[in-house]
């Protein structure tokens, strides 16, 4: 019963805060409206310069093809390789193609590895197509069938991941500041001399963040439908279930950090450290299977990894309970144990 009163208090405090309600509304909007455009790993408009020493029909045809290609922005010809390299150094070109005695040299600026390799790969492809034109095809024709995401829409891939980021930031950082805040204010002492149970106290701190998570994710779903026309392929129920489980983990985790911290600054730095690690190792941006095995092992205890995996399955591949049961179980276990820890780490009697 006391839970009801404690909950009311938490909600009132959040509502009265000058900054939090605005943050809760504005943050998902900004993230959903901006980041899908930004999180675009597609490599476009690679600037290429050519050094044509041959001046043959073949080399002319290649340059023509380059101009026509929509991958490349053809920045003209240079007399020597040195001149072309200077262009790269001045950031006027990304790739150089040199044609000499019928041989091709592709030199790509690969400070950004993806860009470099994609650029040189595309370029090689164009050259290869040219060369094989007229000859018998080397390989048998290979057909590629893409399952899901038929339009190769990168936004569809990233939007469910954004749900994870929004939920993580909203339900992780705010509770991390909560108990430390009461400690710094001195009100926690008053709570500690009341007969309020540790469970009720911690639950009252957790539940508002779960509701915030639900609110935020509803906003995200509406925005992704309204702005991008993207809706989950699977059942929306599973999206909510997953979000609640993730919120359970992060809110408990935030409170744990808050319980052990002495100042708000400490809490936020520690939280930030874990958030960055969890996020980078979750497969949100990069495939987990490409990681070395020691790093891959950490994904077994990383709730973000399970969440990202599962929500992409639901959202993009249209999976249901059967497909994500393992992830649901893992998230539940991690979330519950964090909850228990959060209660255990709150000490009323030192």
């Amino acid at each position: 019963m006391t839970l009801k009163f404690l909950l009311q208090k938490e909600f009132l405090q959040i509502r009265r805060n000058a900054f939090l309600p605005r943050l809760i509304v504005a943050f998902p909007i900004v993230i959903m409206c901006v980041t899908p455009w930004v999180m675009n790993m597609e490599v476009k408009q690679i600037r290429v310069v050519a050094v044509d020493c041959d001046h043959t029909v073949r080399s002319q045809r290649l340059l023509h093809d380059l101009e026509a290609s929509h991958y490349f922005t053809f920045n003209g010809q240079r007399a020597t390789y040195q001149e072309a390299l200077a262009d790269v150094e001045h950031s006027k070109a990304d790739v150089i193609v040199e044609i000499r005695n019928g041989k091709y040299l592709i030199a790509a600026n690969s400070v950004n590895g993806t860009k470099g390799s994609m650029g040189s790969a595309y370029l090689s492809q164009i050259i290869a197509q040219q060369d094989v034109a007229g000859q018998a095809p080397t390989g048998q024709g290979m057909a590629v069938k893409l399952l899901y995401n038929p339009h190769q829409n990168y936004q569809l891939y990233m939007i469910p991941a954004l749900f994870a980021i929004v939920v993580m930031l909203m339900t992780g950082f705010l509770p991390a500041l909560n108990i430390v805040g009461e400690k710094e204010q001195g009100t926690i002492e008053q709570m500690n001399v009341t007969p309020v149970s540790r469970w009720a106290f911690i639950l009252a701190k957790l539940i508002p963040y779960w509701l915030i998570a639900l609110f935020v994710v509803t906003m995200c779903l509406l925005l992704s439908w309204g702005v991008y026309g993207i809706t989950p392929a699977g059942s929306v129920v599973w999206v909510y279930v997953l979000v609640i489980l993730l919120a359970m983990f992060f809110s408990s985790f935030g409170l744990i950090i808050s319980n052990y911290s002495e100042t708000m600054q400490q809490a936020i730095f520690v939280m930030w450290f874990f958030v960055v690690c969890l996020m980078l190792l979750s497969g949100l941006f990069t495939p987990t299977r490409s990681m070395p095995s020691w790093a891959y092992l950490t994904t077994y205890v990383n709730p973000m990894h399970y969440f990202i995996d599962a929500i992409r399955t639901v959202f993009i591949r249209g999976g249901g309970f059967h497909e994500i049961s393992l992830q649901l179980l893992a998230l539940l276990c991690i979330g519950l144990s964090m909850g228990v820890w959060a209660v255990a780490s709150y000490k009323k009697n030192a």
Binding site: M1, T2, K4, F5, L6, Q8, K9, L12, Q13, R16, N17, T194, P195, V196
Partner: peptide
């Protein structure tokens, strides 16, 4: 950040 009545209510409820 709670009003007078809200404070009373909270502690009474606890």
């Amino acid at each position: 950040d709670l009003s007078v009545a809200e404070n009373i209510r909270l502690f009474a409820g606890i």
